[in-house]
Design a protein around this nucleic acid. Structure first.
Lengths: 371, 371
DNA sequence: GAGGCTCGTTAAAACAGTTTACCCATCCGT
DNA sequence: ACGGATGGGTAAACTGTTTTAACGAGCCTC
């Protein structure tokens, strides 16, 4: 009962001998106090059914008494997994400040948490890739798997994960021909709804501001748009499409280009909300009223869009959920419970104030464009 | 030269014997191949000056040959530090989707990267705190330190870090009387600039939509606003202030309240850009033109604000830099190189289109407010 | 030329868990 | 009463580094 070394503290020791405080307790210490082997303690910790409830209770009581916390680093070293997931982001300066990424990551973190995993952020700068740090992440046993968000077809390093069969899931892009798990939103379905809606409102001259065609999902939108326009007898190739590169800035520039070429345009569909924001600003500064002179539709449904003037009509993408599903697939992949595949989540149109019936007064406004 | 087990591959082996592939190489394998001890290899890895350049070169060549990567888990277990930083976020649903947090985290990640540290995300849900997981993070040797962002005075658990002297840095809030490192923007300075500017424009009736007063930085703005208003003979307590809780939604609600009470208000200062966005929408829907009838000023300078109609005049907070500095302080703290202290970063006003000279036609518009 | 100093290198002990092979005591059926 | 199965527990090996104390060799000094 007498501990080998007693602190000079004068406290009357209660029934259970107080821990020597200071020193961090390890599993060996627990084992000693509970009169069992370290193996037993470990098994109790991992709810191994081999251990009697009586023994387990005894061990557990010692654990709570001492406030013992297993060292996760040691667990990782010994075990097969580290329970750490990596999120790879491109180095669009301030990528994280983008609600699109934020929403995604938020979904990932929430889900990872529920599965007892942690999430690490990693930005895939050119150096990072050149030094093959994305592979090192695995080789140094730092992560069990990675989620890739915001990449396009030019980021060929993504294929390394497939080549070396490292668990990885790509979000909102697909790499045809490579066995990489991916999870995407149904952009095509959303685009169909947008086109149907705009046509129903009587719009004929509809422009498109799309994201970089290096991304499969952006191409989905383009494809749908082109087909629907051709069906109505308008040739989209006649300058009705502009690349807005996913940013407000280029969205703004794109709408000015489109309006210059086609002053009679009455509606524009944007591949994401940021471009829609830029387009709305460009249109207004060009002297058009939204939605009276120009209907604008976005895609993403970032929280913010509802607070614009006018509130933005947009395609809702379940980004939070998407992140969660990507995360779950990754964890399954890590444990070999799943085959690489592509999963698609449904989307739907959210009607707000930036769209209206087409009016016949095409080519209105047109005052001197700002800047 | 002949490896113990040769794979049945028929490739003519080049001069240097190919590694047995499959099996991960460890430091022992490197040591064996370079004819040195593991200690030597470890020292080479850590650039220990005790090792001769000749030996080091030999070891390094073996390392590159085999593509060996030290196991970071093992390094952490053995060493004192894990080189992992935690970022604690409140569970404002979708906190991460907020550009404010995004920009901050982005700065943190960039800086951490430069110091060879990794960043982990953790959302401090009520359960999380109740189960004392924020302490467990340290006890289980998972992180070396944490950055706390987005918390207010009610989040008393922050003090636990001080109590248990765990390295932690609080961003954009200060806890008086507790020795916790914190890094904040000069909100007071920004507010002074805003007030000076609005007064110069001839505004007299200025409202304030502030963030939660549980945050020191929000209080800073309130204090400055109150003093400056009193100096001009307006009593801010007469319903000129509203709590916008940092969100667009409440910002919108707040402006409607303020306009109801004071139809002659000609300018409003908002504690962050999100509230400013909501305020602008509310004002417009209330029939006011911004900036003609109402000047609006925000605070944060989120990228997005420049693309509103009209573009938002706002206080620029160096959030990216702030994150970086917080991160750097934390790393210093971890290595015992710094004493807890508070650092303040300068801010400045960014003039855009949402502000204008005060007009005398106070109480304009006022048409039926949209729901 | 022997004792004392460096200097570079090494063997072995941490670090803190998990897992595997084995052991012993019951219990069961015949 | 005996062989085999079974259940509960344990000792020891293992994970892959860093670090410390010791050690041998060369060089300097007297």
């Amino acid at each position: 009962m007498t501990p080998p070394t007693t602190t000079p503290s004068a406290d009357a020791a209660p029934a259970t001998t107080a821990a020597p405080a200071s020193k961090r307790v390890g599993i060996r210490e627990i084992a000693k106090r509970a009169n069992v082997s370290v193996a037993t303690v470990s098994m109790v910790l991992n709810a191994n059914p081999k251990i009697t409830e009586a023994t387990a209770r005894r061990v557990r009581s010692v654990i709570t008494e001492t406030g013992y916390q297993p060292n996760r680093i040691a667990q990782s070293l010994s075990g097969k997994h580290t329970r750490m997931l990596g999120v790879l982001l491109p180095t669009l300066r301030h990528a994280l400040a983008d609600p699109y990424f934020g929403e995604l990551i938020s979904g990932i973190v929430d889900k990872a948490d529920r599965f007892g995993h942690k999430v690490m952020l990693e930005s895939a700068k050119p150096d990072f890739i050149r030094e093959r740090k994305h592979i090192e992440l695995f080789d140094s046993r730092f992560v069990d798997g990675v989620l890739c968000i915001g990449f396009n077809d030019l980021h060929v390093f993504i294929k390394d994960f497939a080549k070396q069969s490292k668990p990885a899931v790509v979000v909102n892009n697909t790499f045809a021909g490579w066995s990489i798990d991916s999870v995407v939103c149904d952009y095509a379905g959303g685009a169909e709804q947008v086109m149907t809606y705009l046509l129903q409102l009587g719009h004929e001259k509809i422009g498109l501001i799309h994201g970089s065609p290096n991304v499969q999902t952006a191409r989905s939108i383009i494809t749908v748009y082109e087909r629907r326009m051709k069906e109505r007898g308008l040739d989209p190739a006649q300058g009705w499409m502009e690349d807005g590169r996913f940013t407000e800035e280029h969205g703004r520039y794109a709408i000015l280009e489109l309006l210059k070429r086609h002053p009679d345009m009455t509606a524009v569909f944007c591949g994401n909300d940021k471009m829609a924001v830029g387009a709305m600003q460009g249109a207004v500064q060009n002297g058009r009223f939204v939605p009276r002179d120009l209907s604008v539709v976005g895609c993403d449904n970032i929280a913010h869009g509802a607070f614009l003037n006018p509130p933005l009509t947009t395609v809702h993408l379940p980004l939070h959920e998407l992140g969660g599903i990507a995360c779950e697939r990754l964890i399954n992949l890590i444990h070999g419970k799943a085959q690489p595949a592509t999963e698609t989540l449904p989307t739907h149109l959210v009607l707000r104030g930036s769209t209206a019936l087409a009016t016949t007064n095409g080519g209105g406004g047109g005052g001197g464009a700002v800047a």
